[in-house]
Design a protein around this nucleic acid. Sequence first.
DNA 1: ACCTGAACACCGTTCAAGT
DNA 2: ACCTGAACACCGTTCAAGT
Lengths: 278, 278
Amino acid sequence: MAPRTRRPQRRTEALSRERIVEAAVELLDAAGEGGLTFRALTERLATGPGAIYWHVANKGELLDAATDAVVAAALSLAPAEPAKPAGPAESAEPAESAGSSGPTEPAGSTEPAEPPDSPQDKIRAVAFGLFDAIEGHPWLPTQLALQLSRSPWGSVTPRIFESIGRQVRALGVPEGHWFTATSALVHYILGAAGQNAANTASARTFPPDVDRAEFLDAASKAWEELDPDDYPFIRAVAAEMREHDDREQFLAGIDLVLTGITALHLPSTQGGAPSSAT
Amino acid sequence: MAPRTRRPQRRTEALSRERIVEAAVELLDAAGEGGLTFRALTERLATGPGAIYWHVANKGELLDAATDAVVAAALSLAPAEPAKPAGPAESAEPAESAGSSGPTEPAGSTEPAEPPDSPQDKIRAVAFGLFDAIEGHPWLPTQLALQLSRSPWGSVTPRIFESIGRQVRALGVPEGHWFTATSALVHYILGAAGQNAANTASARTFPPDVDRAEFLDAASKAWEELDPDDYPFIRAVAAEMREHDDREQFLAGIDLVLTGITALHLPSTQGGAPSSAT
DNA sequence: ACCTGAACACCGTTCAAGT
DNA sequence: ACCTGAACACCGTTCAAGT
């Protein structure tokens, strides 16, 4: 079986913006932020820099396109153009694991959980889609921050905002609070996923034989070594941090924000815990 | 009156790590991410690159130090060393406006508001300290993301975590939920402040005579021009976005997360809206 | 219309040499 | 111990020239 050849020595199909972006994502995945250079790109694509500049204005635009492609795949939205039905990029996100409800346990809440396919569940699915995408592409949060500072109306933010916002609306939040509730969710998701990507990226700098558990152990040890006079709280939660599961933690935070939205903006429901509208 | 001379042509006091970091912050503030180069730094400090490398290992460490200094000032914590009592850096954050409760109105909530100096109020103060720092140093969020991916146990995250965590503890949250609640708050704050910094940085790229209102107008117009079939929700909130006040929005999000924490982790309180413990 | 590849300006970093 | 500054390897980008 040889469904796709890796690193074509000589280019067979014509250069295209799509292929360049695909190669850029591969380089970023393989070697991180500094791995994407025009020289590495020309070598991988077997061309000269001029050819790349014919399809792409500059490096910033290339990074934006790579960021956008990965996020679009994670949100399961079509990336601007229909493209071929078969999955083209080898680094595209499957986003299938995000379809079901939660990771290990539903949450720390005592609530039994809403009906499947509730808006809450769909919000969790979108969040985990991004979470997983970032885990596979640790360079994403930084690039997202950079793109954000270049042009806040870039294509990535609207995509995320739209995905979450639709579910906020379905939740029954009154129109006057749509923006606030959606912003809170999006900000939490990006912040938390970014923090987690930092851990992932940092764990990669360790020798490969050191697994994630050992890394977390080392990290929490570093926290424990902080001056107890300056950092009493951190000392107190260092143990909790060592035992925590990233996905579970992420989900608990989402449920926390969802609870806040429900309690503040859906006073009709009794109790305040997240439950489906009606 | 000449309390401090700007851009000394010839260096009078000896070079120090502190002075280098100070100059780095100034360059970042003036010209953004790309403004900090070793050549600009040597010119400003009237030295050669070797002198800088004697005090600082490399550019990454310098960026980390600059980020740390600004965040530490924003949190009103001592930046590693006591330094002189008089404010040394001209770019240090005052963080005084964050001392009082809110910006324009307390919140969109119907609750009357907690007693001043409540944990909730202190959380808001810390959050606005960071919010203001980021507004003055739009390069901060990106550098924070970069530092995070270099070493998650860097000094900045613990600082923020500690400041928020203490108040979460004071809130009466049971110990088992400290980490979750604090993480949710920190992630929201960093995510929201980062988004806002993006707007600020982007507004700066406009000609100076275009004020922020016009910029927001242009931004929301860009959102309104998105394909209504792909982005129905965004179209619906574009108007809301144009009218929103950044600080008010930020505060509303914090109160939303606080409400979630109160409702989920302080079941003793009645109702679910944030109120002080006991 | 699309691609080539030498050339340019600029960057972070090093290091033998000074004081 | 602290600083100098020429030199090095590498980067993003350009552009006259090809097909």
